[in-house]
Simulated scan of single mutants.
Amino acid sequence: MRFPLLAALGALALQPAAAHAWGGTAHAVIDRAAIEAIPADGPVFLRKYEDYIGASASLPDSWRGDDMNFSKIEEDPNHGWFREQFTFLKPIPRSRYEFVLSLYKHYETIKDSDPATAARTNVRWTGTLPYAAMEAYQRLITCMRYIRKANAEGGDASVPEQHCAFQVIRLGHYIGDGAQPLHDSVNSDGWRGDNPHDYTRDRTIHGRFESGFVDGMKLTVADIAPRIGAPGHRDGDMFDAVLAYLDNAGDKMETVYKLEKRDHFTNFADRDTRELVYTQTGDGARMLRDMICRAWAESATPPAKVVPAPLDFTNPKFNPETGSAPG
């Protein structure tokens, strides 16, 4: 189903863009499967926007063009989480800017003693994916509160519904990226460093797996729908849940390299590679569905009053380096 305000954006999303993430097939399948798995007590209004969301699933990749310097610098890190690059940082800060500052402080510490590591101790070579996901998630909650307000007052909810659909596109893309094991490792585009197992250093492994193989095996929503299961993450800390989700996917990074050694992802009937794709895209759809449903549940309550406010210097978590208290 199409809506006038969304038609132009949908057309833009279908324009060619450089491949940086799961290919368009996997992103669209993850988003569509997540929406179709929303239960009756969830935000079922999103089903009206499934075509728009599915067609726009790769839209955030189009914000990363080399000619779009302001947008690219902000957006590029949002698509990765290279865990090996910040093992020194525990716990993970609950603020994008505290994370960036921590990286820079470590860079300053090691730049003379270990310049090679220091060269990649920065936001571009670590990623900010969980922050991008949480930012989209909280914006989704806000959109959903406006829907509830319109419904309660007998008003028109179509505009906030469209806002929500756009935030689902953003959230779905980052969660979809996080399901791809190569997005959660410094070995994103070919093996780096010591290589005792002789894994490929060819940068094209990324695209050959997530686009070439996925398109070749003809992945569909029906392939992963039975794997999604009942909604989860109904309570608990969502940021911690996102970090655990990324860790689970990242733990399978070496599996991708082992499978690549067989036939370079040219055998679309390879059962193990197909199973990995089904598992990871299914996990992505499940996580996205769960975050959408959790956002809907959270939107039923008014915004919590934070005292002292995050910008209040007396807040015990206030960080003068960022000018705010973290989440």
Rank of each mutant, 00 (worst) to 15 (best):
Asp61Val: 06
Asp61Thr: 09
Asp61Gly: 11
Asp61Ser: 11
Asp61Glu: 11
Met68Glu: 11
Asn69Gly: 08
Phe70Asn: 09
Phe70Asp: 09
Phe70Glu: 08
Ser71Arg: 11
Ser71Tyr: 08
Lys72Pro: 02
Ile73Phe: 11
Ile73Leu: 13
Glu74Trp: 10
Glu74Arg: 15
Asp76Leu: 13
Asp76Met: 12
Pro77Gly: 06
Pro77Leu: 05
Pro77Gln: 07
Asn78Tyr: 04
Asn78Met: 10
His79Cys: 04
His79Arg: 09
Gly80Ala: 12
Gly80Trp: 07
Trp81Ser: 06
Phe82Cys: 02
Arg83Pro: 00
Glu84Ser: 14
Glu84Met: 12
Gln85Asn: 15
Gln85Trp: 05
Gln85Pro: 08
Phe88Gly: 10
Leu89Ile: 13
Pro91Ala: 06
Pro91Asp: 09
Pro91Cys: 06
Ile92Tyr: 00
Pro93Asp: 07
Pro93Leu: 04
Arg94Leu: 02
Ser95Ile: 01
Arg96Pro: 02
Arg96Asp: 04
Arg96Glu: 06
Phe99Asp: 03
Phe99Leu: 02
Phe99Ala: 03
Val100Phe: 10
Leu101Val: 13
Leu101Lys: 12
Lys105Ala: 15
His106Val: 06
Tyr107Cys: 06
Tyr107Met: 09
Thr109Val: 13
Thr109Ala: 15
Thr109Glu: 14
Thr109Tyr: 11
Ile110Thr: 11
Ile110Leu: 11
Lys111Tyr: 09
Asp112Asn: 15
Asp112Lys: 13
Ser113Asp: 13
Ser113Trp: 08
Asp114Tyr: 12
Thr117Met: 13
Arg120His: 14
Thr121Ser: 15
Thr121Tyr: 12
Asn122Thr: 14
Val123Tyr: 10
Val123Thr: 14
Val123His: 13
Arg124Phe: 14
Arg124Met: 15
Arg124Asp: 12
Arg124Asn: 14
Thr126Gly: 06
Thr128Lys: 07
Thr128Met: 07
Leu129Pro: 01
Leu129Asp: 03
Leu129Arg: 03
Pro130Arg: 04
Tyr131Met: 04
Ala132Cys: 07
Ala132Gly: 09
Ala133Glu: 04
Ala133Cys: 10
Met134Leu: 10
Met134Gly: 07
Met134Cys: 06
Glu135Asp: 09
Glu135Ala: 08
Ala136Arg: 05
Ala136Leu: 04
Ala136Glu: 04
Leu140Met: 08
Leu140Ser: 04
Leu140His: 04
Ile141Phe: 00
Cys143Asn: 08
Met144Asn: 01
Arg145Thr: 01
Arg145Cys: 03
Tyr146Trp: 01
Tyr146Ala: 08
Ile147Cys: 07
Arg148Gly: 03
Lys149Ile: 09
Lys149Ala: 10
Ala150Ile: 05
Ala150Lys: 11
Asn151Thr: 11
Asn151Leu: 09
Ala152His: 05
Glu153Gly: 15
Gly154His: 10
Gly154Leu: 08
Gly155Met: 12
Gly155Arg: 12
Gly155Asn: 10
Gly155His: 12
Asp156Cys: 05
Asp156Val: 02
Val159Phe: 13
Val159Thr: 14
Pro160Tyr: 00
Glu161Asp: 05
Glu161His: 06
His163Ser: 10
His163Cys: 10
His163Pro: 01
His163Ala: 12
Cys164Ala: 14
Phe166Asp: 01
Gln167Pro: 01
Gln167Phe: 00
Val168Gly: 01
Ile169Tyr: 01
Ile169Asn: 04
Arg170Leu: 06
Leu171Asn: 05
Leu171Cys: 07
His173Asn: 11
His173Gln: 09
His173Phe: 08
His173Ile: 07
Ile175Trp: 03
Ile175Phe: 00
Ile175Cys: 02
Gly176Trp: 02
Gly176Met: 03
Gly176Phe: 03
